[in-house]
Design a protein around this nucleic acid. Sequence first.
DNA 1: AAAACATACATTTTT
DNA 2: TGTATGTTTT
Length: 716
Amino acid sequence: MNQPKFDALTASQREAVFHKEGPLLVIAGPGSGKTRVITCRIAALIGSGVWPRAICAITFTNKAAEEMRQRAISLGVPPGAQISTFHSMCVRILRQYAQASGVNPAFSIYDTADQSKCVKQALKDCDMDSTNFPPGKMLAAISTLKNKLVTPEAFNTSAEDFFSRNLAKVYTRYQALLDQHNALDFDDLLVKTALLLEGRAEVCRELGERFRFLLIDEYQDTNHAQYRIAKALASLHGNICATGDPDQSIYRWRGADIRNILAFERDWPSAKVVKLEENFRSSATILKAADALIRCNRQRKDKRLVPTRPEGKPIDVVVCEDEFDEAFTIARRIKDLASSGERLNSMAVFYRVNAMSRTMEEAFIRQQVPYQVVRGVEFYNRKEIRDLLAYLKVAVNPQDEVALRRIINTPTRGIGDVTVEKVQAYATAHRISLYQALTQASAIETLSGAVKGRLAVFVARLEVLKKDSAGPAAPLVQRAFTESGLEQSLRESGTGGYPGGQDALENCQELISAAGQYDQQTETPSLLEWLQQISLFSDVDAYDGTSSRVALMSLHAAKGLEFDHVFIAGLEEGLLPHEQSCDDEQEIEEERRLFFVGITRARKSLHITHCRYRTIRGQTLRTVASPFLFELGVESTISTAKEDRDPIHDREHRYDRSDPEITAAFTRGEMVRHKAFGLGRVQDFTDMGDNSFVTIRFNTGQTKTLMLKYANLTKV
DNA sequence: AAAACATACATTTTT
DNA sequence: TGTATGTTTT
């Protein structure tokens, strides 16, 4: 049926696509057409008589899952196969087997911000000092334990040294708090699923019978919990197909265990291994450099990078003066490429740390190069979105105390900290949840009549929402928006606590329409399901490859993407490899893989820059070129960006040239640069047209009032 | 309750 | 250097 579509496959791709029964490991290098192989494999399985519903494909990101679904559709694969991320699969399993796994199906999903609230609370409850035990560190340690499926009880018995014993206390308390709140954090989703599958043989068998074919993408990024889940799910039949590239493992720091993919053949001795070594993406020149680089890693399975494309342009390595010069140089080269007919959305700039995006953005604005910054979080982390979602979460799961505390006085409704503490005291005394205590507020003697009234109004609103919480999500989100008072407070912005009132309003409306979309796409939509689903979303998916803009992103964010022209900035010691990843050889090797990932995104041309000086945290330091540069082993065109510019007044010229608004108004607090005095902050601005003057406190400590027309200031 | 002030902090990021 | 968060002030 789908046979004609498979004709274009290479021999090794065919092997991977048509291997039917038993374990299969596909080691797929960059640009080897891996995604296509997986979707073709799904099609081939179904073509050979496998029922679509028996297929379970697991990805790491929602974006990857969506892409795979789209590809499957365009291949003509009938619907029914489950294609989802590890986490959403776990949510589904946990809800289906709620009883067996000991969770309440209305659970909230806690993200890092919620987690951090709980850890802080746990530290407080344990009388531990957050200076000696920083919440972030504790959370990371807890996450590591969870990844290894170590329960608080187990850790309690094994913890011996001072730190471990304290960690055990916090971990135990933290987990108790989550239980109390009927909440699972991201790690719990995996842990509970793994424990369910390993602890309940009948559940494991049922799921094994249902999902006869398991496909796991990016297997090199699995952590231990995910590994155990995969192993359990495939234990019945051994039909597990793992695909990945050990050379693209860049998430060790968040628990990814490269040993999972390296030891696949040991776990599944009958495994067939297929290597996809041909690269259909990059020019031979780029591949040669990438190959030379990655060969410097010692802990590695040997793998070839076989080019199928012609030589292409030489790799371009540029030494810049400082980060401004670097950004300027990149912007100018992009302009050159654009004027030679290349599309802006075929180009991308990668950097090691997101902080580097700002300098880039400034240069791009000045040079008028359209760009988009691709960043992780944003939308769902906005205050107004979190507030609105918290309101809904409480309606669905009143035990969710983090959400409840968030909204109890947001927008302000005269329920201050003192009141909450009184209610909390009552709750503790009567061993009930905070929410339950709120419903009994009239019985709390320490509260005044007025406060009781306000609490009653608040609870009544939530109760109504809770009662009507069945059916489509969008109307409920709309209602919560209005009834919570959030909408009104946003409309009256300026006075309220929301500085960007208009934006915030639009964001909330966007959330409502997102809920509407979910309602339309889902057979039996429910608020609970929607909330659980969007907890697992981030908006990296918001990257728009079709708009005509250059993409700016971190090297990590670049994984899975490809561009004709790639720029990688900051190839300096301490930045790439990052100074905090230089402790051991393993970390250095991961940094090398990160660079490798960046390089192999490029199809036609690769441009690498590094600076002689870079300002980090306000200090300008002389830099050293990254050792990785020399490992590329290519005859690179080393050019100095500065050569065609005035060497002394570079920076000033750059700004003068591109900033015609030199007499524009300045506002208090703005950063400006003065030729002689350097950086400073505007204290005051008196607009007198041509004779305007401006008061600036310079970083040298002096404050000066200058005539604008003579000052020659530039905005920073 | 809001604004002003002070202080810690600072990779990578998905779920 | 900036920011994000927490604390004090009004």
